[in-house]
């Protein structure tokens, strides 16, 4: 199985390559991808350099163009698709139908991967994307069990990529308007979720309150480490208690299910984290590479090194092991 690693900057890109990635994914410095945060991403020259660096070490580069094109401004996405293709990207990761059609028509030799943002969660959905656009690989939403993934793999004629480590989007990716509601900025349209521009922290007695777009998202006592107010990971009043109503603010780690994922037919393992610094990338990628090579009995010790790097210093298996159906 391939290890697909994130890079938010040229420096992180080189770290990911050196630490053992099979492919690195990155985006341009604009709203054409879903990590459109200040200080991140690549201009064209940087992308060309990165692709060259990777290629010399037999590593692939995927370029994320996974937001939804703004009506009337499609030329920006079309231009970026052409630039990435001409720079030698091994695949484009796309979510928007119009852009998929454009790439299929104008860059027919360009390998097309479908982003998790397209929310293709069952065999018929994947068939639609393969039939209409010639998709070669589809990144599955983090709402499926390993059994669901195996069912899909038996029925479709394209490669499957799944997230195994990092930040977890608990909603159906590509179909959430929570950030839009609270701040006017959305992952689909602007490539941001719960953007820092709308975050405020304030003291309230001995507590630290985090706010997003004027909504209170969480409240931390002095002993608690304060988290970032991602809207779905807040604590809300439900009935009589204040609780993480949507999801606990923890990260995904299913590295102990590698054999099951392989048996299910997964081709590639994806690591989330383009907004992470190069030290994180270096440590996570090298540990995951070592884990992939290790015997099953040796994997837990390797992975425990990464626990402290997880959100909330805890991890979850997400929907991969869900018992409710």
């Amino acid at each position: 199985m391939e290890l697909i690693c994130p890079a938010g900057t040229p420096a992180s890109f080189r770290e990911a390559v050196d630490a053992g990635a099979d492919a690195v994914y990155c985006g341009f410095r604009d709203e054409t991808n879903a990590r459109n945060f200040p200080g991140l991403n690549f201009d064209l020259a940087e992308l060309r350099d990165a692709i060259g660096y990777a290629r010399a070490r037999k590593v692939k580069t995927f370029v994320a163009l996974n937001t939804f094109m703004t009506a009337g401004k499609e030329d920006l996405w079309y231009r970026r698709a052409r630039e990435a293709s001409e720079a030698g990207a091994d695949a484009l990761i796309v979510a928007d139908f119009g852009l998929m059609a454009h790439v299929a028509e104008h860059h027919p030799a360009q390998r097309l991967h479908i982003s998790v943002q397209a929310s293709a969660s069952n065999p018929e959905a994947l068939s639609y994307l393969v039939d209409c656009f010639g998709a070669a690989r589809i990144v599955l939403p983090r709402t499926l069990t390993i059994q669901d993934i195996a069912r899909i793999a038996r029925s479709v004629d394209c490669e499957l990529e799944v997230f195994v480590f990092g930040g977890l989007c608990v909603m159906a990716e590509g179909r959430c308007s929570l950030s839009s509601y609270a701040t006017g900025k959305s992952p689909n349209m602007n490539g941001v979720c719960s953007p820092a521009s709308h975050v405020r922290y304030r003291q309230a007695g001995g507590d630290l309150v985090s706010e997003l777009g004027g909504f209170t998202i969480n409240r931390f006592s002095e002993e608690e480490p304060a988290g970032y107010p991602t809207l779905c990971k807040g604590r809300f009043a439900v009935g009589q208690s204040a609780t993480y109503a949507f999801e606990d603010p923890v990260s995904l780690d299913v590295m102990d299910q590698l054999d099951e994922l392989r048996a299910a037919g997964v081709k590639a393992l994806k690591v989330e984290g383009r907004q992470r610094g190069k030290a994180y990338i270096s440590e996570v990628v090298s540990t995951l590479r070592a884990t992939l090579k290790a015997a099953p009995a040796d994997r837990p010790v390797l992975m425990s090194r990464l626990r402290k790097l997880s959100e909330g210093q805890q991890t979850t298996k997400g929907a991969y092991e869900k018992r409710w159906r």
Partner: peptide, 8 residues
């Protein structure tokens, strides 16, 4: 405002 595979 969102779809999730798990409902509270």
């Amino acid at each position: 405002s969102r779809r999730a595979a798990r409902m509270p």
